[in-house]
Nucleic acid binder design. Structure first.
Lengths: 206, 206
DNA sequence: CTTATTTATGACAACCCTGTCACATGACAA
DNA sequence: TTGTCATGTGACAGGGTTGTCATAAATAAG
């Protein structure tokens, strides 16, 4: 948490510091990001930084929390969870929203992608927290099981895991080369495979 | 490529340097690895390093090439590609071999995992090369399509992509926490899903 | 034995980084 | 005005990194 001094600061200055943090952390991994660079971009003296934040972790945590709040709002106002739609439909919708968000705030999104590339203790802890949000998806999948849409023998956790990995990986690709259209087609393709499988269906099996 | 001077070196010294490189690159990402550390571990003076290698990239490339050769030998001597077995069986077998290899040479394996975590230009180039080896898998999948084992409408490239991502991700997990047994069960689970899908099969569909 | 060439070596320059701390400045109160 | 407290500030210590280079040692050739 930033110090009281930080919160007493001129809002414009706060914004400048926040922006500088976003700039740095969306360019370099946490472990490679430099406070020096941040203070330079924010136009504040080095000493001041330590007046506002304990260290790099402190700033990062603050930034991530703020961004997280903003993202959550997007999901909440979309109300995708309140429908009776099936698991895949909801997942796709969430993905769409996430994509739209990433489009308006590409730097924010880069921060999350870079987070996945980091393997420091600190980031590992953070990642764990954000992954816990996926419990909702597990519930949805199990609901569909009860509704007879998903086979009963399917390992729910594994499916959630798989989808998380694949979505993340696809996102990475998107930021490297693909267009949004391509990306969405890819995600559709993935869903199709996870739903139906790729093997030729033979009768009397299960 | 190392200089002639390097290859003229006492083999024992060469081995020491190689080992030091492996030690460092299996602990830290390429971008974070330090030549200082390597020369220290190898017990050679800093100046000598630059007599043998142009820079860090040069050494890394050499090391990766050597390790790649060794890994390829494993696959070749297993002759998994010569069977009439189906795609999934062969993939599983390759995975098993890879796992066995990773078990005897965990440092080598860590190097590849860390490579996936890096995003420098240099590593991106390297990764691309190693991914091209997956063309064989694509051929196998297409063979199974012709044999009527895989549905004709399936996007081969996408499946190869998906499997690559998922296998890699599973490997990462294995090195972080899981046991080999757990990992193999997970991979089996993934194959099952990719094969059969997770949706309840309704008649008269496709 | 002497000269030429190759190889070995560590000090050095130049550039990063972080966290601290003594001091300067501003603000508000007595 | 003087004192007190909050804030601003940059120099500094101590740590890291890479690549170079003058010199020393070893080896080969004449």
């Amino acid at each position: 948490m930033p110090t009281a001094t930080y919160f007493n600061l001129d809002p414009e200055k706060q914004r400048r510091i926040f922006a500088a943090a976003v700039e740095e952390f969306s360019t370099r991994r946490f472990s490679e990001a430099s406070i020096n660079q941040i203070v330079k971009n924010a136009g504040i003296p080095r000493g001041s930084f330590y007046q506002y934040f304990e260290n790099k972790e402190d700033l990062y945590l603050y930034m991530i929390t703020e961004i997280g709040k903003e993202k959550m709002q997007r999901f909440e106002q979309a109300r995708v969870f309140d429908t009776e739609a099936d698991f895949f439909t909801i997942y796709m919708e969430l993905y769409r929203i996430g994509l739209a968000w990433a489009k308006t705030k590409p730097e924010y999104n880069r921060i999350f992608l870079l987070m996945e590339l980091d393997d420091s203790e600190f980031i590992a802890k953070l990642r764990k927290l954000s992954a816990e949000g996926f419990a909702i998806m597990k519930d949805l999948l199990e609901r569909d099981k009860k509704r007879g849409l998903i086979r009963a023998d399917v390992d729910t956790d594994l499916v959630i895991d798989i989808l998380y990995d694949l979505m993340l990986q696809s996102f990475k690709r998107y930021y490297l080369r693909s267009s949004e259209k391509e990306l969405l087609r890819r995600v559709q393709g993935i869903f199709q495979i996870i739903k139906e499988g790729i093997a030729v269906k033979r009768e009397g099996e299960g």
